[in-house]
Design a protein around this nucleic acid. Structure first.
Lengths: 240, 240
DNA sequence: CGCGAGCTTGAACATTATCAAGGCAAGTGG
DNA sequence: CCACTTGCCTTGATAATGTTCAAGCTCGCG
């Protein structure tokens, strides 16, 4: 089993593009061909991958690690839009027109990425029409998620938003533990605050309250144990 | 010049699909063919077009009028996600998989729409690959707009959000007037409040303050005269 | 062991939501 | 043509909620 240079042992037979859903309709041979077009790069924690206003000439596929996509508001506060992890891709929106990046992308930890150039990507689109359909589906999913987030931001109380975020993290980053669900948080308190659009202090306070009520237990800054999922679901929905 | 049944005199030679950007790469003959696949429907103000949870089997293209897309939060409050007007389309996300509608769509005024069935739409996608690319571009635009909105919701003060909304409306629905820009509001105060995720009373108060400061003049419930665009731009950005 | 980044907590302050009352304008029926 | 109704908007007072500023803590790491 060959390993491609970009991948850790987790890499499946050297085909790291296999992880990406937009290529899922292709067979092994086609994947190998695409794999050969790919360049690799590794980013350190805190390193900027795309700067707002850049015109990146490739699409990024994350192999290992995670990144945050964010913008600054005029008054200097950071709004996190996405957290992308292994298997996710980003940058496709800049391949079509000649658009500038609408947000910054920064590595949250050591991150390995695969890159496909603009022209190669376009060739693939004409060669394999199924890819375009996959992309449309992915974009629709992402759009649906944004609609969900927008609704949360607009309507829900801060308590409900925090509960919803914890539940989301439990699904994506959680693992079963004897006392509950252990969540490895992708973001710091400050990061979560910037994602939810609230002050860092507020999320500290709210998490303390949740801990007092035995809904969660703070294990460390980077992980939380979810004790009472049902109560959180309740919080995320009903309570105003 | 033939008129199609769905269109008013504004309709261009019977080709109402011509208004839709996703078909812009096609020639006249192709458009005529598509036109023949289309069914028409007229909705009254307040009428529901899509209900959350439905599985609509067609894509909707608006010919005349406007609609709002919205969800209800668990506590019963309405969050408006989009306002679509003539030339816009929606419902494309339900054509791919077998997804349920993620939000309600309701006519804001008397609205004429053209509909293309799921299967016809799919056939078009395979027949004309350019359409898929146009759709990807449109979705990316919509996504970019959502990202912008999310940032506004998360970071900006209510004053800034209101200013940004007015400026946006000025661009889309405004007309030059001797005293400033006259905006025909697509939404009521309550609608704007639900779009911005704030209370109806709050937007009333804020608009009054803006009027006191001579930035705007309330003409009627449905229209506002924008007197000082520059000051609004200032408000929408700098001020916290 | 000591340092620093990131987190927590407290108190005062600012903002917005909520509740309640009233106003304005368009449309309706006598 | 006027009184009445209805829907939507405005304004005021009060309560709830989050922010900000300031101080101190804790854990991980050199």
């Amino acid at each position: 089993m060959k390993e491609c240079s970009c991948c850790s042992t987790a890499c499946d037979g050297g085909i790291c593009v296999k992880k990406v859903s937009i290529f899922s309709s292709l067979d092994h041979q086609e994947l190998v061909k695409i794999q050969s077009l790919i360049k690799h790069h590794e980013y350190q924690k805190g390193e900027t991958i795309i700067r707002e206003g850049d015109k990146p000439d490739c699409v990024f596929i994350i192999n290992e690690g995670s990144v945050k996509a964010y913008k600054y508001s005029p008054d200097g506060r950071e709004q996190i839009l996405y957290v992308f992890a292994a298997g996710d891709f980003f940058g496709e929106q800049y391949l079509m027109g000649n658009k500038k990046a609408a947000y910054h992308v920064e590595a949250l930890e050591a991150t390995k990425s695969c890159m496909l150039t603009k022209s190669d990507f376009r060739k693939l689109l004409t060669l394999y029409p199924d890819i375009a359909i996959k992309i449309i589906e992915t974009l629709d999913d992402r759009l649906a998620h944004m609609e969900q987030s927008l609704q949360s931001m607009g309507v829900r109380s801060v308590d409900a938003r925090i509960a919803a975020l914890l539940l989301h993290y439990a699904d994506v980053y959680g693992s079963i533990d004897k006392d509950g669900i252990l969540i490895r948080l992708p973001l710091s308190r400050e990061g979560m605050a910037n994602y939810l659009g609230i002050a860092r202090e507020t999320i500290s306070r709210k998490l303390s309250l949740l801990e007092n009520d035995n809904l969660i237990r703070t294990v460390s800054n980077k992980s939380i144990l979810l004790l009472d999922r049902k109560a959180l679901v309740e919080l995320s929905g009903v309570n105003g």
